[in-house]
Every structure is written in C-alpha cells, then in structure tokens.
Design a protein around this nucleic acid. Sequence first.
RNA 1: GGCCCCGUGGCGGAAUGGUAGACGCAUCGGACUUAAAAUCCGUUGUUCCGAAAGGGACGUGUCGGUUCGAGUCCGACCGGGGCCACCA
Length: 848
Amino acid sequence: MARYNAKESEARWQAAWDAAHAFEVPNNSPKPKAYVLEMFPYPSGRIHIGHTRNYTMGDVVARFRRAQGFNVLHPMGWDAFGLPAENAARERNIDPRQWTYDNIAIMKSQLKLMGLAIDWSREFATCDPEYYKHQQKLFLEFYRAGFVYRREADVNWDPVDMTVLANEQVIDGKGWRSGAPVERRKLAQWFFRITDFADDLLAGLDTLDRWPEKVRVMQRNWIGRSEGMRFTFDISNGEKIEVFSTRPDTLFGASFVALSPEHPLTLELAKTDARLMAFVEECRHIGTAEADIEKAEKRGYDTGLTAAHPFDPNWKLPVLVANFVLMGYGTGAIFGCPAHDQRDLDFARKYHLTVTPVVVPDGADAKTFDVGDEAYVGPGHLANSRFLDGMTVDEAKAEVAKRLEAAGQGTRTVNYRLRDWLVSRQRPWGCPIPIVHCAKCGVVPVKEADLPVKLPDTINFDVRGNPLDHDPVWKHTKCPSCGGDAVRDTDTLDTFVDSSWYFARFCDSHAAEPVNKAALDYWLPVDQYIGGIEHAILHLLYSRYFTRALKKLGHTKVDEPFAGVFTQGMLCHETYQDPDGEWLFPEQVEKRPDGTAIVKGTNKPATIGPSIKMSKSKKNVVAPEVIVDVYGADTIRWFTLSDTPPERDVEWTDAGAEGCWRFVQRIYRLATEAEGLPPAGTVPGKTEGVSLALRQATHRAIAAVTDDLENLRFNRAVAQIYTLTNVLQQSDKCDGAARREATEMLVRLIAPMMPHLAETCWEALGHKTMLVNTDWPKADPALVKSDSVTIAVQVNGKRRGEIEIAVDTAEDTVKQAALAQEGVIRALEGKAPKRVIVVPNRIVNIVA
RNA sequence: GGCCCCGUGGCGGAAUGGUAGACGCAUCGGACUUAAAAUCCGUUGUUCCGAAAGGGACGUGUCGGUUCGAGUCCGACCGGGGCCACCA
C-alpha cells in the first residue's frame, strides 16, 4: 500500500497555492470580510514549535473562514526593532540590520514550510525605512494634535555604560551589563498622552465580549480607576499642599500629612536642610524592584512644618516626608489616617503618631473599638468625627465632598493608576524620533518631505551609551525652521509603538500615507487576534490607545482594533542536563526504557528535568523543520491542535507526534481506498441501518466540527474528526455512496487543520479543483437529528437502567417504560415511587 | 497584601445542572509475518460477589449546603498557577 509522502505533497501544494495567488486578497469584495491576525514575531533567530502553534491556530481560522465564503485577510510581518539585535551586533561586531534581515529570511523560510494561508504580498518589517517613515509621519501628526509632549522624567541610568535601561534590565538595582548601581536621572523625554483616554479605554473594555475575561480584568486593573477627592492643606510656611484621597470620610482620623521624597516642596525644603537632602538621596537609591519594596520599611522625616486640618484651622498635623508616598500617583502627597489604612498604620506605629478610629463596624462600640495592628477598611458608621458621626461611609464621603467643594478647598476627582506612555528610548536600533533641537528655535519637527529620518548606515557600538548620540555625522543637521546648526533627537521610539499600528498598515501595506482610510474602513477591526498572554496588558492597551488616536485624526472609524482576542498557551518540553549541568538539546539525549537517559553517543547519564516553556536558553526546543522533514507540516499542525485546549500550555512529545503521523496515514488510506466508490448521494431511495448510521455520524461531525471551529475549540474539533474516522473505518458493511460521502466530508473537515493532506486526498478522490477553493460543507439537519434516543433511568439519582425510545415520546409512555425496567423494579424493592421526574429525551429520575 | 484562574484514570483531556471519563497518548492481550516494521481486533478508574453471563459499592482536591439529580451552582478550607502590588 502506498504511503503518504508528506514532503513531496506539501511542497507541491504550497507551490500550487502560490501559483494561484490563493491567499492574496483585494481590499474590497462583495463577500463578507474576516481579518485574522496572529501577533507578528520578533525575528530572534529561528522559529520553534511554540511559534508554529500560534500561527497554526490563526491559519485554521483563516482557512475555515475562507471556506465559509469570507474575504479573509491573513497577513504576516516582523516586529524587527529591539534589543537582541543590538546585543548580537555588539557581541559579533556585525550590523544589527544584517542580523535582523538574515533572521527574517531564515524564519520566513521556516514559516513557509508550515503551509500557512498568508497573503505574503503585504509583508513588511518594522525596521524597513518604508514602515518607520510612516511611523514618523504619525508621530508628527500626533505632535501637531497635542497627543505627544515632552517633559523631564526619571529614568534608570547606568552610570558606567552611560545609558538608560529598561526596567527589566535593572536587576537587584544594578545594571545588567555593567553591574553598577542604577541611578534615577532626569532626562527630557517624549510621552504619549494615553491618560487622556483612560476613561474611554476603561469603558471600551465592556464592549469587548470576545476577549478573554482575564485580559479585560488585567487591563482594568492596569488602568486602575479610583474615585476620590483632591483637597488642600494650609501649611505653616504659607504654602499649600494638595492631596488625593479615596477616603475623605476618614478626614477626622487624620494624624499626619506626608509628602513624597520627590515632591516639589520636599526638594525645595531639602535645599536648606542637609539631613532632609540625605534622606531624599537615600530614598532615591532604594530600587524600584518589587522585591525591594517588599523589604523596605516605612521611613519618614519630620519637616517641622504643620498643616492645618481643613475643617479646623486650629488642629495642626505634622508634615513628614515619607518613603512610601509615590510622586507618580495622585498629587504625590497624602493625609495619613492610620486607623483605616495599613501603610499609614505601620508608619504611625513606628513614629508614635495618633491612631484614631473614625469608622466603626456595625455592632462595635466606638468607645472601645481598637484597630490593633490591622487597619479597619470595612464598612460601618462614622465616630469621633464631629458632624459626620453616625453616617455611613458613603454618606460621610458625600458630606465631606459637599463641604470642601463649597469652601473651595477641594474637588471630587477620578484618579488613574495609568501613566502617560514614555516612548523615548536611548537605543540605536529603533525608529528615530523625527525631531530636531535648535538652540534658537527649540524643538522643531522634521519636515515631512525629509522623512524618513533614516538610521545611519553604520552604527558604531564601540561607544558608551547610545551610539546615535555619539555619531559625529548623523547627529548634526540644520534646523528645519531657521536653517542654523542643530542636532537631531537621538532617541528612538519604544518598540511598542511599532506594534501599536502594524495591524492597520497591513490593510494596505503599500499605501503612500501611513494608513489608507478606505482599506481601514473595510478591514478593521481585526476579527480574530491570536497571541500570547504576555501581551495582555501593554501591547493590547497601546494598540487600543493608538486606534483611538487614529480615529480622532480621522484615519479610521473604529475605536477598538481587535474585536476578538484569543490568548494561546505555550509549548513545553522536558529539559535535559549533562553531568556538568550544561543544558542539552532533546536530540542530544537518548532515553532508555527504564525512564533514565544518557547523553547520546556516550555513557554519561543525563538528568531529565520538568517540562517547561520552550526556550533557547534551556535548549528544550524542537525545530519545526526537523519534524517537517520526518513527518511533514500537517503532523505538527495536527499535534499542536489536538488534545489540549488552545489556551493552555501543551507538552511536545515524540510519542504524540508519532500518533499524529499514524493518523495522517490513516486518513490517506481511507481516501485512496474510497477511489472506486460510487459518487456520494447516488444510492436511490432511503439509506437505512448501518448506512444510515454512517451518514448520521458524517453529518453530526460536520455540525460539531463547524461549531467547534467557530468557537476556537480545536481540540474538540479534532476529537470529533477521530470519532468520524473510527466510524468510517468500521463501515465495510455500508453502501458505497455513504462511504464516499463520509470520506469526502472527512477530507473537507480536516482541510483547515491539515491542508496539504486534505488536498492530496481530495485529488485522490478524483477531484480536479483544489480543495482550497471548495466551500465548507453543510450538515443536513435531518441527519443530525436522530429518531430515537437513549434515556437513562435513575432511582434516587442512581442509574438503574436505560431505555431506547423514539424522540419526543409522550411523558407517560416514557414513565411506564422506565418503571418496567428490570433494574428499576429491583431497586424499588416493591415500594411505590413517590415521584417520577421525566426530562424529555434526557433522563428519568424515580424518587422512592 | 489585593484580584483572578485551575484541581476529573498512568498521562493530555471530554461532559447546555441530567448515563462521569468522549477522543487521543500510553499499557496489556491477540491477529497478520520466518522475523521486524506497518496495520488490524480487543483490553484498561478502584473495589466486592460470581465459573460465567451479570450484578453491587465507591469514585471528579477536602468538608458542608442547595436540588428529584452536582465534576458543573453556593460557602469554607487545602493545593497549584497567573496578574498587579507602598496606587492613598
């Protein structure tokens, strides 16, 4: 018997699809549109099986929609700016451009092997000058619209490498390369005004019903909306301090006012107070890493100033500088109410400040209520609070707000955790910020005709700090405004900017303007976006922001870029180490029957570690082209869709891959065996008996697989296909037409998942047209429905028998049949049933 | 510390409040074969009674609750994971 030759077959069909331009789509069509997108990859080197899972899922959706008659946009590109290219360039003394484009070439060839239904005519890399030119145009448009601004901001500064570090490059407060303690330094930086959209970004989440709830919750928390009040304290030196609080009701429980070490007033006071200056310096050196915050104890410095209580000018509160007050949230100043805030309580206990409970839980006595070491944050009634006494928390909040607003001392406000998006990066491998700094004219945008501001042809990494800043030629230019000598902004844009609008560029990758409105109007929003959970917050939030900004500028009519989001799990694999602790690739290890392993070709034992996410560093990766070579792409595709729900992590195993390969052969055999069968539907008259059962199984599979693919339940679709395959394989007593129908449908159902195999089988079944141009099958409702049903019969909730009976049989008849069951009679032991519950076509429960 | 998710055979996992374990992997037994590969048929939650046919009990992390009926809903706990985190 001929075996399926995946290698030959896959190459042949990929060439045929290419020749037919099967996946290139127009930007308009009478068909309904579907935009299917997977998060585009960073070209880090090579693709591993984990990547292919992501692209396979998207491909299944794209092919499925295509078969259903949609005009499907399914593009691919490269998120190509970023640090790994810089590191590679520095380490190997090569051009980051070279490294990146080489990787793209390799990864593209690997992806091509997977047979993805991608419109490659729309491909681009974000490091293409053609792409970042348009990004620079958008930046300037944002600038003119006031969406972008520049201000001094604190950054992580490595004093040895003389560069700014991203937060994740700061390890234990030290630079990851230099090991030097990182400093906070103020630099003029560009920001996107994302906070202007905070409320809208929050409200929009409620409309995203095809997003994972988990992701929406994460975004909600990230935006972090809290309602409260801003109000001012008069300070003994004549100044005012504005604070933000979500608990103005506890104002009579105040025992201090605390300023952030970075608060302007703190810095002013520090000028004449050396000890305060030292304290501020010390706070600055405490890292921003979470672990440090956990350990850091609450510390304060008494300024000697006092603040007058807003409701009682004679009540003076001490003003302290406290290390736990954040400058970046609210106003950078708080009033401390220790009884009802844990941080304030810890602080108050340490510095022996007053603790006055002002909210007392219902049922507790205000005179004896003591918070101990745990601040009370629950509901209750106000006490020790003059005119607020007896009110609920909400009533007191309203009353305080009313009085402070009436007195002009404060206002109700909404505060967000979300900050404006700092986009300046002191990095050479990114999109240059199209701005010129002129001594005379200040900040001047580059003229649009002069875009793109291209990166220099050679980037010299042999310098400390940002090579662009040290470039003797590139950096210097003429002022677009006055024509005098000026310098470029040597920062580049955060690479998250690159990925915040690429989905819009895909709508027309070759448009003369950044985005083509007509194409956006046609394609957006993306109907199904698929990617990793690691992008649940930043990338998706930035893209949502960008889309809103683009809308305000008239480039699109949608608010939300992604109507449906799906986050897929990672691919895992066992890890292996040699006796020296060095990681080993799976192919370097030979497993023995007793469960142990040795280093291949030696007698050295290899330790088998847990199955964890595939990563280059642990070497637990499987290269797709190796598997493609042995089993073909369809086997990988089938494996990554089988068994495990797509949102969960899945473990790659050789045994599992073998199983998929056997299934590929099974399908091929069934298709080639069906060659001589009569066409489907040629048996005159009715089908009955086993043939009817086969036809029913076929149409039920169509219905079930369709439903599962609609809902991205790939593992269940796979199980349905196995079920049909099993029935078909045991159908030698069925008539030929029913078998042919089952075989043809089976082939059409596997097509989105194993497209090459499906084409080959389709051809073997005698078809002259490609399956890729064949519509998705429709189930015959009459065959999906069945005439009879098996109903379980329970006595007191325990199964005692079952009856096979016509669908929709009258309740009484079902009841009688149930009571006549032998097992039921035995279980009843002659007792009369008290009650009989009949759930039509499902179950009978007899209560005895 | 806050919020969220998940606990089902040897493993991955199915199951609109209605026959728990579909489907796959692995296991074991058998057929075909000189043999192997490939393929096919059968087997597999635990336990008890029975020679067998068959029948009974238990079973979805633990303990309660709601219900005629709970893997599914509610409460508490145990275990694992995720996100945020001095956010006032």
